[in-house]
Design a protein around this nucleic acid. Structure first.
Length: 888
RNA sequence: GCCGGGGUGGCGGAAUCGGUAUACGCGCAGGACUUAAAAUCCUGUGGUCGAAUAGACCUUAUGGGUUCGAGUCCCAUCCCCGGCACCA
């Protein structure tokens, strides 16, 4: 009797992990551009001691795909790194009472050990850590390029400020409690007034405040149209594209100027619905509107001033909260609707926001719910100018009668009878012809706020010289902007980029934020004191650091070039990749410099061969943050001539969320899963299989401890199958057929990320083999390959040790669907179900048998009887459809 | 409110083109092995009625429709999840 070998998962997994690393199995030669597959997993930010189960879930999903691609013949490059700069890591360092440097040294080691213990096929010779000076000098370089392109500028802006994190947040980082999945809390501990409408810090859940601060911004809005248009070209989940589309929020409209009665002034409003303008009966402007007081009559001054004062103390988010009673105050002046001479009273009301449109709204109460509510309250005339689909022509007295969507124009002179969409176009033409309005497009997207008043980030590499500022000298005095030319809409005087990068982040002890509106570096003269690059006089470095999302906006460009000495010139010519449109001379000079080059953050050759990313695998929570910023940065780099493509991730797959026992994992629930525990107890293969078996990759998956036991059992049975099941030369028909089907199913399912059904199919196959009680070596070969993406350690062990192969299973070729098992007969059968004739089935066996049976639709049993009588049906048998394929 | 995606056993979830609904796994029940337990293996397992491993009826959120045939297609209703939202 053969001696039973039992499966020691711990020993096997450790052995192969070491061998893979030593043999550099997963470190491809990137100078081979053929059949390249850049498989990218969204790198984690270290804000805890190590990985949580969500990382294990999503990274395994990415790894399975990478391993599969490798087996079907692609040269797969699968890197990993750490998004270690930024607020998440800094907050964690503060929490554990360490410097970020100390904390990261420990935790990134832990992350690395965990990633390795999961058995992922990462290229450990090419990793990226965004807080390494080798990396962030290039993040700073990117900032400088932005500045030189005139895409970076300073502006005093009303910013979101988190009093707990003591920093400014981008709009995208401010969320509702539901979005952030956090309980809202006030900084001072007081109860949150309207928790559902609160806007909180994405990171800590504190209700954000509004502050006016001078900040650096990137002109992402200049790229709004391109970001929108390109969505059609990329293969991303529809919901992510939709989120980006909504976030960009492009709307065609028109800016209309209304003269003010008895005054030389006019008021500009923006509207997307000029068609209803004959029904306009009032104007509302925002309390922050610069002309608010100018438009106010002396006898209304007191009232208006009081109103503005009160509205200042209400947060923006409360102001626009739905269902809130309208408030407002009359300025005493009127604007004239030149279409019909109507005198429209001008009000100030807080529901109008200064940063939307022109900060002024024309009120059409008959056809806008919000305007209707306002008109009701202030007893303003309500005119009907549209008859909706309900045909109602009566006076509009109820909110339900307010028709916003569809209809035909009435009471609108030259528009009468037109459908509202055609009327809109006609009205725009009319207004433009007379010079009363101008078509403009409005966007929801705002410029990207880059500055952070924090310590743990790349110092913004800019220098401010007061002396030069006074003399109105700046970088742009000598240099032309490379891309756009906005520098005259902000004062760039005194600002110069640091050419000698990196600007190193000093190691300081007092790195915690103070909430003063300035970063901790502002307390360190040894950092900020410097010389002006222009006049050589005393100057001051910028002490803000850049947003974390700048670090992660380009990391995928870095990976393939890690370890290459790219600071020497590569004689490659980028000219072919230059944009066709006419270039400014400044940009042309710049591109000549690139070609001749100087240093770059990446090798041009490797980048040309390996980018863009072939599959980007990550979470949907970055829909409008990282995924938008990375696209923007890539477009800019393309325009500057550094890259030949403008979409970094042509294919993106968004994985779902991992929950535990039906609830979201959280520390307060005490249901956070540490993958280490499960790897220790069940092994990495069991954990991988279980995580992938839970459910569809893109849905919420529910982790239950009892389930993983089953996977361990399955792995043992699998091992038994390889080692102890009696061998045979002739495989049974059942097993062959099943094997056949499984190969086919997996090939399709894995490429569509249907991992759970893939694993189920493998289990079925194994059950079928074990029921047969014997197995052929050929079948085992195929089985090992099928299992390999999911349970790489076990697959490797049986491949090399049991099946005596000389090379790694991951270098083996994925099995193909072999047609030779198929018969060439063809029969036409009638199917009986439960003794009743249920239809005629033509079963063709000449080609792929198990997919090509065709159900011929018989209109009735009578018809089948007829067919039978006429001999059209050659054979009538009872066929349980489950075994239909075998009967064939 | 608008725009997406869903609703299938005790649970996670399967089901190409409309063709025996509930694959695979968990759980549960019974059995084998064992002094016993664990582990392992075998059998059963949608519901109701039924002594039944006889048989019948019902069953994919609810109600209707198309079809020889509907989880799947169409209409209506209810519920859940995600995105957007006084955006002019």
């Amino acid at each position: 009797m053969e001696k039973k070998r039992t499966y020691n998962n711990k020993q096997v997994e450790k052995k192969w992990q070491e061998r893979w690393l030593k043999g550099k199995i997963y470190s491809p030669n990137l100078s081979v551009p053929d059949k390249k597959f850049y498989n990218l997993y969204m790198f984690p930010y270290p804000s805890a001691e190590g990985l949580h189960a969500g990382h294990a879930f999503s990274s395994t999903g990415s790894d399975v795909y990478g391993r599969f691609q490798r087996m079907v013949g692609w040269n797969v490059f699968q890197p990993i790194g750490y998004d270690s700069f930024g607020i998440h890591s800094e907050n964690y360092a503060i929490k554990v009472g360490e410097t970020p440097q100390t904390m990261l040294k420990r935790t990134t080691n832990h992350y690395e050990r965990q990633f390795k213990s999961l058995g992922h096929g990462y290229d450990w010779t090419r990793t990226v850590t965004t807080s390494d000076v080798d990396y962030y000098r290039w993040t700073q370089w990117l900032f400088v390029e932005m500045f030189k392109s005139d895409l970076a500028y300073r502006k005093k802006v009303e910013v979101n400020f988190c009093p707990s994190c003591k920093t400014v947040l981008a709009d995208e980082q401010v969320m509702t409690p539901a979005q952030a999945m956090k309980e809202p809390k006030n900084f001072d501990g007081s109860p949150v007034a309207e928790p559902d409408n609160a806007r909180i810090c994405e990171r800590c859940g504190t209700v954000v405040e509004k502050r006016d601060l001078e900040q650096w911004l990137f002109r992402i809005t200049d790229y709004a149209d391109r970001l929108l248009a390109n969505l059609a070209k990329i293969d991303w989940p529809a919901k992510i594209k939709l989120a980006q589309k909504n976030w960009i929020g492009r709307k065609e409209g028109i800016e209309i100027k209304y003269p003010i009665l008895n005054s030389q002034f006019s008021i500009a409003v923006w509207t997307s619905r000029p068609d209803t303008n004959f029904g306009a009966t009032f104007i509302v402007i925002s309390p922050e509107h610069p002309d608010a007081l100018k438009l106010t009559n002396s006898d209304h001054r007191k009232e208006i001033e009081d109103y503005i004062k009160v509205s200042k103390n209400i947060s923006k988010y409360q102001r626009i909260a739905e269902g809130r009673e309208k408030t407002g105050a009359f300025t005493g002046s009127y604007a004239v609707n030149q279409l019909n001479g109507y005198k429209m009273p001008i009000f100030i009301a807080d529901f109008v926001l200064m940063d939307v449109g022109t900060g002024a709204v024309v009120g059409v109460p008959g056809h806008d719910i919000r305007d209707f509510q306002f008109a009701r309250k202030f007893k303003i005339e309500i005119k009907r100018v549209v008859i909706g689909t309900d045909g109602d022509e009566s006076e509009i007295a109820e909110e339900a009668q307010v028709q916003e969507e569809e209809g035909k124009m009435v009471n609108s002179e030259f528009l009468n009878g037109l459908d509202i969409h055609r009327a809109t176009v006609k009205m725009m033409d009319y207004l433009e012809d007379r010079g009363w309005g101008k078509r403009t497009t409005s966007y929801h997207l705002r410029d990207w706020l880059i500055s952070r008043q924090r310590y743990w980030g790349p110092p913004i590499p800019m220098i401010y010289c007061e002396f030069c500022a006074k003399r109105e000298i700046s970088y742009f005095t000598k240099h032309k902007p490379l891309i756009t030319n906005h520098h005259d809409d902000w004062s760039s005087f005194g600002w110069f980029p640091e050419e000698n990068l990196p600007v190193e982040l000093p190691v300081i002890q007092d790195y915690k934020p103070e909430g003063t509106g300035r970063g901790p570096l502002a307390n360190h003269p040894e950092f900020y004191r410097t010389k002006c690059p222009h006049c050589g006089g005393e100057a001051r470095r910028e002490t803000d650091v850049s947003d974390t999302f700048l670090d992660s906006s380009w990391y995928f460009l870095r990976y393939p070039s890690v370890g290459l000495d790219v600071s020497h010139s590569e004689s490659s010519d980028l000219r072919t990749s230059w944009p066709d449109r006419s270039l400014s001379s400044a940009l042309q000079r710049h591109q000549t410099q690139i070609t001749n080059h100087q240093s770059l953050p990446w090798s041009q050759e490797v980048t040309r061969n390996w980018l863009p990313v072939d599959l980007y695998f990550g979470g949907a929570e970055h829909s409008v943050l990282h995924l938008m910023y990375a696209r923007f940065v890539t477009m800019v780099l393309k325009d500057l001539g550094y890259l030949s493509f403008e979409e970094p991730f042509p294919t993106f797959y968004a994985h779902g969320l991992l929950i535990k026992d039906g609830a979201k994992m959280s520390k307060s629930r005490g249901n956070v899963i540490n993958p280490d525990h499960y790897i220790e107890k069940f092994g990495a293969d069991a954990l991988r299989l279980y995580l992938m078996f839970l459910g569809p990759m893109d849905a919420k998956s529910d982790f239950r401890d009892s389930g993983i036991e089953g996977m361990r059992k399955f792995l043992n049975r699998l091992w038994e199958t390889f080692v102890n099941l009696p061998r045979t030369k002739h495989e049974s028909v059942e097993v062959l057929s099943k094997l056949h089907k499984t190969v086919k199913k997996l090939t399709k399912d894995i490429s569509e990320f249907k991992y759970n059904t893939s694993i189920a199919a493998i289990m079925e196959l194994v059950n079928s083999i074990r029921n047969a009680g014997r197995v052929s070596g050929a079948t085992l070969n195929v089985l090992a390959l099928l299992v390999a993406p999911f349970a790489p350690h076990l697959a490797e062990e049986v491949w090399v040790e049991v099946l005596n192969k000389k090379y790694s299973v991951h270098k083996a070729t994925w099995p193909s669907y072999d047609e030779k098992y198929l018969s060439t007969d063809s029969v036409l059968v009638a199917v009986q179900v439960n003794g009743k004739l249920r239809g005629q089935v033509a079963v063709k066996l000449d080609k792929a048998a198990d997919e090509s049976y065709v159900v011929a639709l018989a209109k009735s049993d009578q018809k089948i009887s007829n067919w039978l009588a006429k001999g059209k049906i050659k054979k009538q048998i009872y066929v349980p459809s489950k075994i239909l394929n075998f009967v064939i």
